[in-house]
Computed example of a mutant assay.
Amino acid sequence: LRKQCTPAPYRRIRRWEHEAVLDRMQRRLDRQLDAMTIRRRTVEHVFGTLKHWMGSTHFQMRRLGNVSTEMSLHVLAYNLKRVIRILGFAKTLRAMKLAGA
């Protein structure tokens, strides 16, 4: 039976050095079946919005530093728009002035 399975005299099992982290995460997900559903609801909307703003297909810049800057500006704009929508423009402006002082 062994000859049908492998030609080597021993059995080699490959495992990533941080595989235990993935195993723990999988056990947590198995205990909380709706965890990924909740995560998708809260996170995917944000990334979908940002992707729509960026043109849905690509970044405007090239090279990692430039792309990182472009993404940071999109995230900053998204967060600023949310704060203005939640607090209102006047309170946001007041908070920005207090933070700068």
Rank of each mutant, 00 (worst) to 15 (best):
R2V: 00
K3S: 01
Q4K: 09
C5Y: 10
T6W: 10
P9I: 00
R12N: 04
I13K: 02
I13Y: 09
I13T: 02
R15P: 01
R15L: 12
R15Y: 05
E17T: 11
E17S: 06
V21A: 15
V21R: 14
L22Y: 12
R24F: 01
R24P: 00
M25E: 11
L29R: 10
D30L: 08
D30S: 10
D30T: 06
Q32E: 09
D34Y: 14
D34R: 15
M36C: 05
T37M: 13
R39P: 00
R39N: 00
T42W: 11
T42S: 14
V43C: 13
V43Q: 08
H45T: 15
V46L: 07
F47Y: 05
F47H: 03
G48Q: 05
G48L: 10
T49C: 08
T49P: 02
L50D: 03
L50C: 05
K51Y: 07
H52Y: 13
W53T: 02
M54K: 03
G55M: 13
S56Y: 14
T57A: 10
F59K: 02
F59Y: 05
F59C: 06
M61F: 05
M61D: 04
M61V: 09
R62S: 12
R62V: 03
L64F: 01
G65S: 15
G65Q: 14
N66T: 03
N66L: 01
N66F: 03
V67W: 08
V67L: 11
V67N: 00
V67R: 02
M71D: 01
S72M: 04
S72D: 05
S72T: 07
V75N: 02
A77M: 03
Y78S: 02
L80T: 04
L80R: 00
L80W: 05
R82K: 10
I86K: 15
G88N: 02
G88H: 02
A90K: 11
K91Q: 07
T92N: 00
T92D: 01
A95V: 03
M96L: 15
K97Q: 05
L98Q: 03
L98G: 00
A101S: 11
